[in-house]
Design a protein around this nucleic acid. Structure first.
Lengths: 212, 212
DNA sequence: AATTCCAGAGAACAGTTGTTAACTGCATGG
DNA sequence: CCATGCAGTTAACAACTGTTCTCTGGAATT
């Protein structure tokens, strides 16, 4: 099935990716609703009208960015939640994984955090949909855990949403820790790790005593 | 000390408030980083240059909006957390209070949720500072509760931050419930209430078993 | 009553924006 | 090899932006 793209289509996808990358860079210091189409094409080095060959509008580009930032994250979520071991180990491994992801894709994380409640409705909706999928997947994994025996579906989904929100909140804190002077960065990162660990621990406790 | 403002100062404050109100309205469907100064003055019906008599820039106006939206909320927070009664009653009363606030000041809530991670740095910082104050106040109230006996200061602050984040998340969900067709609004609101209640219940459980 | 002060108006500026139309050159399929 | 398709270009448009300077009318001060 895999068909090597003609040089025509390849060049097109290359430009498209360049537009996405440039936009993501420009969005470090502004929101999507103020991102101009000309601004993006200027950063890529292409004519303004070329933009329309790839996206209907900047909102459309935003939706594509949501796909890029969250679409490829699903397998990671599943393996994270279903990892084995002691409660404490699982928490540590989850937070470590979040930290690594923020470190590897800071612009993606910033984009999601910023546009989740941002001013562009279609983008908000796309993010909401992806996060709902995450919550569903987390729920499915939680259901397999013996701790969840006797839980109702609604309760499982409620806990899954709590975890997803907590992951996003933690990611955002790690992102803030990356900004500012470099020498104090490990200290700030460590502080976030500790805070997130304790919050996860507390939620885990609530989980284990839910059916009392 | 209270000195009745002269006609001069009174008129100025009136215009200033009109600018803030107009901005808040315009921000329902965009982010602060795309809000234009002329756009705001046009909505109020004054000359563009009049803007500079009140604010240095739209970012400056944003900081003033943070003050307006969160500054007057501190007494409410204190009384909410320190309310007496059964655990379950306290949760219900807290969520009811959040729902009422979102209903009364939806534009304020939207603004805070949107700009907390938004594209304007001074505004982000102002919100972060106010939320940190909230967390500090929540911590002080939690410390008075007998349940908190034996808790370290760091653990109390960690729980306070968790509560503040949870309140904001719940407020944002209530806000989403307000949008869309009116007839299904009570159903959506009820669903949010139920979700938030169970999440608070779980956090409360974790809290009571923290020192096991 | 005369003077100062200042919120807001008005006009003009250089630069930006999104969108349209008609084009060019090159990879593609017949 | 030739005709078609289409990614990207060029030029032009009306509308918009933030900011400066100069001016004005009326409240505040003396």
């Amino acid at each position: 099935m895999s068909h090597t793209l003609g040089i025509r289509q390849a060049q097109k996808q290359k430009t498209r990716q360049a537009l996405l990358d440039a936009a993501l860079g420009l969005l470090e210091e502004q929101s999507l609703s103020s991102l101009g189409l000309r601004e993006v094409t200027r950063a890529v080095g292409v004519a303004p009208t070329a933009f329309y060959r790839h996206f209907r509008s900047t909102a459309d580009l935003g939706v594509a960015l949501v796909e890029e930032a969250l679409g490829s994250l699903h397998p990671m979520i599943r393996t994270t939640v279903s990892t084995t071991g002691d409660h404490e180990e699982r928490i540590a491994r989850t937070i470590e994984l979040i930290a690594r992801h923020v470190d590897g894709y800071p612009a993606h994380v910033r984009f999601i955090a910023r546009e989740r409640h941002g001013g562009v409705q279609p983008v908000r909706e796309a993010i909401r949909e992806q996060l709902a999928r995450f919550a569903q997947e987390v729920k499915d994994e939680l259901a397999k855990d013996p701790v969840s025996a006797g839980w109702s579906g609604g309760d499982l989904l409620m806990l899954a949403h709590l975890y997803v929100d907590q992951m996003l909140s933690t990611a955002s804190l790690f992102l803030e820790a990356l900004e500012g002077p470099e020498e104090e960065r490990p200290a700030r990162t460590g502080h976030v790790t500790e805070l997130a660990t304790r919050q996860m621990r507390l939620i885990g406790l609530g989980r284990r005593h839910w059916l009392d």
